[in-house]
């Protein structure tokens, strides 16, 4: 996300990938485990207008630190040493610019292997580099994503080349888009001064919790007690925590207040954004007796306004 702000990137829908891509690279991304049907619907075996033979029309490369379950679906596996993705990407940019690194190996990968990959990217009709948390969470973090976007930009001189993050949660793109549209910033926003301020590292959840700054928390459709480092998440046990969730979780167990809600896409219709920013309307095959989460949020907003009016009234009375 930060990398995108630093560099920008060309965009296309997954439909374009299905119809056109003849080179697909998964870097630090393991769709076989995390996005099981991505491969069959869009990026692997999918048959499209200019990819009529499906899998046979695509060269697929997995770049990762370990032999993930996705490797067996690829034509080529390139193993990078832990935390060396930035070095490898930089070497690829160097090779793309016509210079050769002064060694045989970068980050555990042979320079010849990298030169071949760069050559494939240059010659692709349409190349796509999907990257995952193997890029964004390893050493270098968002700078790795920046290097990916810059490599994509370099390749755009030679071929159609796309770089796209493999986003996790089904509507994490929507949360970023909605926050951008409403506040100007995609995440890590603070309204303490009455206007939105953006600062990852300061207003991002793990930093706030590990510094034990919040004195109350509202968790909406998330599971910090399972998915965040415990030294950060444990602060939620020490402050009044409110959880809105359709189902019991490890976070509802430690919450002061639990408010059950309908399950978006399961028991209530709603809109969500796919990883390529295409909004999709979700159906509701099941029924739930609880309201949709907007309703309690709206009730909380009204109640807080009422409490403030009452408090203001008391002050005036004095």
């Amino acid at each position: 996300m930060v990398a995108l702000q630093l560099g920008g990137a060309p965009a296309a829908t997954l439909g374009e990938v299905k119809n056109r891509a003849d080179l697909v690279i998964f870097w630090g991304s393991n769709p076989a485990d995390s996005h099981p049907r991505h491969f069959t619907r869009y990026s692997g075996t999918a048959k499209g207008r200019f990819t009529r033979k499906g899998r046979k029309d695509r060269h697929i490369v997995v770049v990762d630190v370990r032999r993930t379950p996705s490797v067996k679906y690829a034509d080529e596996f390139i193993q990078v040493d832990h935390g060396c993705d930035y070095e490898v990407l930089t070497a690829m940019r160097m090779i793309a610019g016509g210079k050769r690194p002064d060694r045989d190996e970068v980050g555990g990968v042979g320079v010849d292997t990298l030169a071949n990959l760069v050559d494939r990217c240059k010659k692709a009709r349409m190349g796509v580099l999907f990257f995952g948390q193997g890029i964004t969470e390893t050493r270098g973090k968002h700078q790795n994503s920046t290097a990916i976007y810059q490599f994509g930009k370099d390749m755009s001189r030679y071929s159609k080349f796309l770089t796209m993050p493999m986003r996790g949660h089904y509507n994490v793109v929507g949360s970023g888009n909605t926050m951008c549209w409403q506040t100007g910033y995609p995440f890590a926003v603070n309204f303490g001064r009455g206007y939105p301020q953006f600062n990852p590292g300061e207003f991002s959840v793990v930093d706030l919790l590990s510094r034990k700054e919040p004195d109350a928390a509202l968790i909406v459709a998330a599971e910090p007690m399972d998915h965040l480092p415990y030294t950060a998440a444990s602060h939620l046990e020490d402050i009044p925590t409110i959880v809105l969730d359709p189902r019991e979780t490890l976070t509802t167990k430690i919450a002061r207040v639990v408010i059950p809600v309908k399950h978006a896409g399961v028991s209530v219709e709603g809109s969500a954004y796919r990883m390529d920013h295409v909004p999709i309307r979700m159906q509701a095959p099941l029924k739930s007796p609880w309201p949709k989460d907007d309703a309690p949020l709206d009730a909380i907003i009204r109640k807080i306004k009422q409490i403030r009016i009452e408090q203001a009234g008391k002050t005036d009375g004095n």
Partner: peptide, 23 residues
């Protein structure tokens, strides 16, 4: 990824917001 692994993961983000899930 789970609460077990997250007992070990460092909450230090070095100013990025991303904790040490892989570091």
């Amino acid at each position: 990824v789970s609460y077990l692994a997250n007992r070990l993961v460092s909450a230090q983000t070095h100013g990025t917001g991303v904790p040490g899930f892989k570091t």
